[in-house]
Design a binder for these strands. Structure first.
Length: 445
RNA sequence: CGGAGCGUAGCGCAGUCUGGUAGCGCACCUGCUUCGGGAGCAGGGGGUCGGAGGUUCGAAUCCUCUCGCUCCGACCA
């Protein structure tokens, strides 16, 4: 993408309403525009990152055997009356009437609707296990939206629901989600720690939240610092192997890690003092096992091998997709701007032409751009007639992890410069070598 | 929902106390010079001050109502 043909409304100054760094940088980098309290338009750069995150979530869910579908944003109230939550949910639920006076609501979550789909079509244990998910906009009419996309009223969430024949199978689904989530967050360059949590209005006993450590996090967290060293890495986990999946969960949940909701000072004090950490965290996901709460209320049953009819065992699992943008920025930035991890960056690399209009640099930039494009890497080429400083400042702000700088001085020696946004380290090399280096970095990302 | 604050040009702000018909920086447009870390000079365009009502000869400024936004708290992916 050539910057002169793109839509990237960057701001030089900090918008007054933005209090935390991710909100400030998302506004300044032209990623979002607020339309109302807690409601945002996603501008082209923000949308690219959002789609990258969605892609990773989709890939990891499908790798775990979970099946995508798409449910509507508007739901009939009657489904929620069946579960009893129409009255329980309170003012956070946005309620709407259609022209016929029928009660609708903008879905804050989808347990009722997915259960309705399930009971309409599944009647036998032979159809199980089944896990369905979607990535869809939710609306929760928060008392106090804040921090940009971190606590919006409208937000994009991946929510998944497992249906299993018995509790053991449902707990395997729970564990499978935990492992898939660990992999998902790692691909985004995040360390998200599963922590024992309280269940809230969804209900159920087994639940973990995934927390990204950040000073601006909304939750106070208590943990053994050794948990931050745990990495799933590239290891292969067979999602159908209950023992193998459970072993990974065991590894990641044995060390003490809890939010303030479930914090136990006695257990905490048993950790060696040097490893005892109190910090703040951003919740980027949560998994629940809740058994037959919804299936019983809504008559979602299956016939077993023995011919009896039993309510199906369920759980639900969520990832805050739009919130992740904020969480990633909180975890990865400096005083110049965002530093995107390669996994979610809106463009893999930026090209800065230091002397726009110079035949040599223009040709070299065009060549780099096309060579990268042939390898499936779409660079953001800053072809504006701006001075070097302005171009560097823009690139630093929007946070592309790699930058290729092309100037007459380097070209005279046959080289361009490749710079890491994270480390600031620059290396000079030929244009061909620069393309090869970028391609190697993104191989497999 | 309790407490606090703010709405003046695309963005950041001054002007409001002490009414006299709107200003600065950035951005934008034109020209010249500049050109490896947000350039300089000159010229130019853009707002009737969130909205409604009131007081007054006169309201961004005073009064009333209203809408919106932000922050702290309680609640939350």
């Amino acid at each position: 993408m050539r910057l002169t043909r793109y839509f990237l409304p960057v701001l030089k100054e900090n918008p007054a309403e933005a209090q935390i760094v991710s909100h400030r940088y998302m506004l300044r980098a032209g990623m979002i525009k607020q339309q109302a309290a807690g409601i945002y338009s996603w501008l082209p750069l923000g949308l690219r990152v959002l789609r990258r995150i969605e892609t990773i979530v989709n890939e990891e869910q499908q790798r775990a055997g979970h099946i995508p579908l798409l449910m509507p944003t508007l739901q009939p109230a009657d489904l929620w009356r069946e579960s009893g939550r129409y009255d329980d949910y309170g003012d956070e639920m946005l309620r709407i009437k259609d022209r016929g006076g029928r009660d609708l609501l903008f879905g804050p979550t989808n347990e009722e609707m997915i259960t309705d789909i399930f009971r309409s079509h599944v009647t036998s244990y032979k159809s199980l296990p089944l896990t369905l998910y979607h990535i869809q906009w939710k609306f929760r009419d928060e008392l106090r939206p804040r921090f940009g996309v971190m606590r919006g009223r409208e937000f994009l969430m991946k929510d998944g629901y497992n249906f299993d024949i018995d509790k053991d199978a449902a707990l395997h689904a729970y564990n499978r989600h935990m492992v898939s989530y660990l992999r998902t967050y790692e691909r985004m360059g995040l360390t998200a720690i599963p922590m024992r949590a309280a269940s809230g209005p969804i209900g159920g006993d087994n639940t973990h939240e995934f927390l990204v450590l950040a000073a601006t996090g909304e939750s106070e967290v208590f943990f053994d610092s050794a948990v931050t060293e745990l990495k799933l890495g590239a290891r292969a986990v067979d999602y159908d192997d209950r023992a193998a999946v459970a072993a990974v969960c065991q590894e990641f949940t044995t060390l003490y890690a809890r939010t303030d909701e479930t914090h136990d000072p006695a257990l905490f004090d048993a950790i060696p003092e040097a490893r005892r950490k109190v910090a703040r965290g951003i919740e980027v996901g949560q998994i629940f096992y809740f058994g037959t709460k919804y299936s019983e209320a809504m008559g979602a049953t299956v016939v077993t091998a023995e011919g009896t009819r039993v309510p199906v065992e369920m759980g639900s699992h969520g990832i805050g997709v739009s919130r992740l943008l904020g969480a990633i920025i909180e975890a990865s930035h400096d005083d110049k701007g965002i530093i995107w991890p390669e996994g979610v960056t809106p463009f893999p690399v930026g090209i800065v032409n230091l002397k726009q209009g110079d035949a040599g640099t223009d040709a070299a930039c065009d060549g780099l751009y096309k060579a990268l494009q042939l390898l499936g890497l779409e660079a953001l080429y800053d072809d504006r007639d701006e001075r070097a400083g302005a171009k560097f400042a823009t690139m630093d702000l929007i946070g592309l992890p790699w930058r290729i700088t092309v100037g007459p001085r380097g070209l005279a020696n046959g080289v361009v410069e490749v710079t890491s946004r994270r480390t600031g380290v620059s290396e000079e090399m030929t244009a061909e070598a620069a393309v090869a280096k970028i391609a190697a970095i993104y191989d497999g990302v």
